[in-house]
Design a protein around this nucleic acid. Sequence first.
DNA 1: GACATTTGACCACG
DNA 2: CGTGGTCAAATGTC
Length: 293
Amino acid sequence: MSMIFHGMKLVKTLESSLPEKPPESLSTSLDEIAKTFGDANERLKMLLEIRNSETALNQLKPVVVSVANQMLMQMEPASMQEYWLMCGGSMSSRGTEAMFQTQLMAVDGGGRRNLTAAEGSGASGSSTPRQRRRKDEGEEQTVLVAALRTGNTDLPPDDNHTWRKYGQKEILGSRFPRAYYRCTHQKLYNCPAKKQVQRLNDDPFTFRVTYRGSHTCHIYSTAPTASSAAPTAPIPSVTTGHSVDYGLAVVDMADAMFGSGGVGTNMDFIFSINDPSQHHQRFRQLDDGDENK
DNA sequence: GACATTTGACCACG
DNA sequence: CGTGGTCAAATGTC
């Protein structure tokens, strides 16, 4: 939408200066307009792709389509301009090439298990098997993130949290291994946040990042929304001073603009528009055929 | 020495 | 029993 508005603005500018426009700059302006609308059309197609995948996604995310439609139908120019500015500021301050993120939030509705004691007991062969947590209850949030195209493209884009890698696993049907990270402050502040990073099969320059658990080692300027329904005792004294929580700030911003769906199910599409002339990323359908079995 | 990463093994779960 | 998530010893880095 913002790109369309931008294109319209260019058209108006051109229109007002048309009589005295020299042919060279006229050509430049037309090129710019054509490119802007072309890019907007490309993104529109992504959204339509999302809508068309309703059937597949509905099993998991009943609200996907409505939110996509909100994007398409209900955005107001004023808020779009604001959104544009917010995105631009946020992204430029980070200096990342992640141009396009799709956020998918879900709440695990599954049952929870009682975890027994014996945490941290011995290694293999011990008579008391160590406790292994599985099936983290709470929300799960999946984000498609463009990989850095310069430097080490193996590294997942920075999300302003410090993560410690604790595992890597070959995943059936995936060309690339899945990496497992947990919050660096897990021990210190009992922070339960974790994330998984997985390259997409058909686009090595895109990561699927799945966040689990919300950070309790951080302070948010705005109250986290559905993504942190029940945070466990935030630590007020922990102010790292290093920038804002980009990942969750994005969610908050999207919530503020679109409004959250019901508890636990909504989908926010984040277009990070640092430089609108670059968006090599294409939306990937979140279906099973895409990658994992 | 403290902390992060690697990696094979362990174990929960379907 | 296969798969995926986690553990923890070994190793690397600062």
